[in-house]
Amino acid sequence: MEPVKFIVGVGAITSISGGLLRNRGLIILSTAVVLGILAWRSFKFSYPPIFDGFDTILLFTAVFGITAIASKAELRLTGFFSGALLLGTLLLPTEIKTIPPIIRTPLFFIHVGSAILSYGVFLSCSLISLFNREADVIKPFKWGFFLFTASLFFGALWAFLAWGEVFMLDPKSIFSVGFWLFSAFVFHSVYDKKLKEFSRWLVISSGILVLFLFLGINFLFGGTHEF
């Protein structure tokens, strides 16, 4: 067994134990282990390996753990779900997808990295809302909005420097702005007495939109964001 998979396995067991014992400390420890693996792999490959299944799911697990702790989600749900995700990564190859040197720029990594982090936060909020009615996910949702805004900003800046455009009528770009507006609506919904009742469902629906934005849009329409 590869050493990295062994450590992931240990992280999975720690997380599931945290869920079983309802121990927040074990879940935090498991999240820290996952973050450590990602930091080590970024150092090893000299750039954040966020373009393959193994590392993307690891990153999502870490984001889910942090979001669940921040929103005071049920510990059994947090522990089991994080553990299941980590066990799932054991089936995936650990090789990384090489990025052409020409696009290996800081702006590219910040743009894509903050987008993936925000997707993770939105998806985590959506899942927590679905299974845990009492959890308060609006605060982490707002951080997801901030990360997504940062991704749009760095994307626009990079597009200006690389292509002489700040925005393209490209499916992913249009849907990203559309989703950005929708997510602004979602966290504003708690300020409207009637809409407040549906905020939970709006957060859940944002998770579905994020999945479409992350996986479905390039598959369906293509465009300049195909990697």
């Binding site: 499916p171 849907f175 507006l181 929708f182 609506f185």
Partner: peptide, 19 residues
């Protein structure tokens, strides 16, 4: 806020059509 929701939805539908 409902107006913001409606306009966001309109943007998404228009965006889908453009794509």
């Amino acid at each position: 806020v409902k107006l913001l929701g409606g306009l966001s939805l309109l943007f998404l539908i228009g965006g889908f059509s453009v794509s």
